[in-house]
Simulated scan of single mutants.
Amino acid sequence: MKRPRFNTLFWRLFALMWVTLILSHLTAFVLAIPLTTGGASPVERMGWSGMATLPSLPPGSLLDAGSGAPRAPAPGWLPTDGVAPPAGRQPGGPPGLPIRTLWLDYALRALLIGVGAWLGARWLAAPMQRLAQAATELARGLGQGSPPPRLDEAQGTEEVRETARVFNHMTRQLQEQFDQRSLHMAAISHDLRTPLTRLRLRIERLPEGVAQAAIADIREMDELIDASLAVVREQSGGAGPSVVDLGAMLQSLVDDLCEQEHTVDLAEPPALRVRVHPASLRRTVGNLVDNALRYGGRARLSVEPGPEGVAVHVDDDGPGIPPVQLQRVFQPWVRLPGEQRPGGSGLGLAIAKDLAEREGGILRLANRDEGGLRATLTLPLA
Rank of each mutant, 00 (worst) to 15 (best):
G143F: 01
G348K: 00
F167H: 03
R219Y: 02
P58W: 02
Q144Y: 08
L224D: 11
R368G: 09
L363C: 10
N291A: 11
L62G: 02
P278V: 14
P75A: 11
R273K: 14
R328T: 09
Q251D: 07
N287M: 12
P307H: 10
R122I: 04
A154M: 06
A186M: 05
S242V: 15
T171E: 06
A132K: 08
H169R: 09
M17K: 01
W103F: 02
T157S: 15
L23E: 03
T378Q: 10
R12V: 03
H169W: 09
G116S: 01
L250W: 00
W11K: 05
P337A: 13
P147Q: 06
L257D: 00
A110W: 02
P241V: 11
P269Y: 01
Q212S: 09
L257Q: 06
L183N: 00
A154G: 10
A187M: 14
A271N: 15
P73V: 14
S56T: 15
T376C: 08
R205P: 03
P380D: 04
P86L: 11
A311I: 01
N287H: 12
M170Q: 13
G116V: 00
P269C: 05
V83M: 01
D316T: 05
R172S: 15
L196G: 06
E153Y: 03
L266C: 03
E176V: 07
D191W: 02
L174N: 00
R368E: 14
V334M: 08
V324I: 10
L336E: 15
V232A: 00
I215A: 04
P241A: 13
R200N: 12
R328A: 12
P380I: 11
L54F: 15
R109N: 01
Y295A: 08
S302D: 00
R165H: 14
L102T: 01
R100C: 05
G306S: 08
L23V: 05
V303Y: 00
V324F: 09
D256L: 04
T157Q: 11
Q155W: 09
G209R: 04
T284K: 07
A121Y: 04
A366N: 09
G50I: 06
L151M: 03
T194A: 01
A213Y: 03
G92V: 06
P307W: 06
A239L: 10
G76T: 04
S61V: 01
P380T: 12
A164S: 13
L16N: 02
T53E: 12
D105P: 01
R122S: 06
A271T: 06
A28D: 14
A107K: 02
A216K: 06
R294L: 14
R130T: 07
I22A: 13
A187G: 10
P98M: 03
D354G: 04
L257N: 02
A117K: 06
E359I: 13
G247W: 00
N291W: 02
T80I: 01
A230H: 11
G50M: 10
L192A: 08
L9I: 12
S56K: 12
G247T: 12
D265G: 11
M46I: 11
R150N: 11
